[in-house]
């Protein structure tokens, strides 16, 4: 009986603690938790395992490292395409992306979310780790209102929050970095280390670009980004059917040999079918007149639509 009372007391003390910790997105010091758990029993052990796994995954690339990878990928993208000069449409997209990012599971990144428009008729969008988003004029022409435009950005935020870009970096690169530096205290990089790390960095960027531009993400990753987009749109206050609207227009405009989305994404019809259990297949929705007016105010000069 006494034993039972003690167990209950311990549980009464520990359960609120676990709840408190699990309700914050602050990463915990896994070693502190582990040492606590050694004495505290199975209840905390499972909480610590979750914290441990999250920490290990996060330690692979911190937000700051993700930012430097993203900057290099973004630099490559801007060297491949002509960039639209920063005007009303770009400024509007940069405001809209803040509204949407706030509704994502990654509301802040080290350097924040930023959008540029690529001046090409090709239908495509690319997102580099850490929040760098690129949308082509061709893809923007597949949007009719703010809701469908939000769907385009929400899909790209979906790739970023799921860290699909980083997934493309081969394990051997990650191992290579560790081989170069080992576990020693490193205060200053020697020339050889600097060269080796720069080489690994360059190869990592190539991994990301190759996947993003040439091979495309996997079908599963595209589905994940679409489902993230649905969640982001809902939480932000947009009708997720804007995604269906955009995909239906894209389906009409996309030519199989046109590169871009056609090469690296499942067909719009397949994507609509995948989304059907979540939001149906109809593109019917209404958005407030003020949103449509805002869309036209900032986008018309770029899209030249009547």
């Amino acid at each position: 009986m006494k034993h039972q009372i003690r167990k209950n007391l311990l549980a009464a003390l520990l359960v609120p603690l676990i709840l408190t910790l699990s309700c914050t997105s602050i990463s915990l010091d896994s070693s502190s938790l582990s040492s606590l758990v050694t004495h505290a029993g199975p209840l905390l052990a499972s909480a610590a395992k979750v914290a441990d796994a999250a920490n290990k995954a996060n330690e692979q690339f911190t937000p700051r490292q993700e930012y430097y990878i993203g900057r290099a990928v973004a630099a490559d993208i801007t060297s491949m395409y002509k960039v639209e000069p920063i005007g009303p449409a770009t400024l509007y997209l940069n405001a809209l992306v803040q509204v949407l990012a706030a509704a994502s599971t990654m509301p802040v990144t080290y350097g924040g979310y930023h959008v540029l428009i690529l001046d090409t008729n090709q239908i495509n969008a690319l997102s580099a780790p850490g929040g760098f988003i690129f949308v082509t004029r061709g893809l923007l022409e597949c949007t009719r209102d703010e809701t469908s435009l939000a769907a385009v950005l929400a899909h790209e935020i979906g790739h970023i929050e799921n860290r699909h870009g980083l997934d493309a970096i081969k394990q051997e690169r990650r191992n290579q970095v560790f081989v170069v530096l080992g576990k020693e205290v490193v205060k200053n990089l020697g020339n050889q280390q600097l060269e080796q790390l720069t080489d690994t960095f360059g190869k990592s960027i190539t991994d990301v670009i190759t996947t993003m531009v040439n091979d495309g993400y996997s079908r599963e990753q595209e589905k994940q980004a679409d489902l993230s987009a649905v969640s982001i749109l809902r939480k932000a206050g947009y009708n997720p059917r804007g995604l269906i609207e955009m995909l239906k227009i894209m389906e009409v405009r996309l030519k199989p040999d046109s590169g871009g989305f056609a090469k690296t994404h499942p067909s719009p019809a397949d994507r609509i079918e995948t989304l059907a259990p979540e939001i149906g297949t109809k593109a019917t929705y209404e958005e407030p007149a003020a949103w449509t007016a805002r869309f036209h105010k900032y986008m018309d000069s770029l899209l030249k639509t009547p």
Binding site: E59, Q60, F61, T62, R64, Q65, Y68, I69, R71, A72, V177, F178, V180, L181, G182, K183, E184, V185, V186, L189, L194, E195, L197, T198, T200, F201, G202, S204
Partner: peptide, 16 residues
Amino acid sequence: NALAGKGFTEQIEQNY
């Protein structure tokens, strides 16, 4: 050290 050991920092970007 574990984090710095990953090495993708401003210094690497500048060299790159």
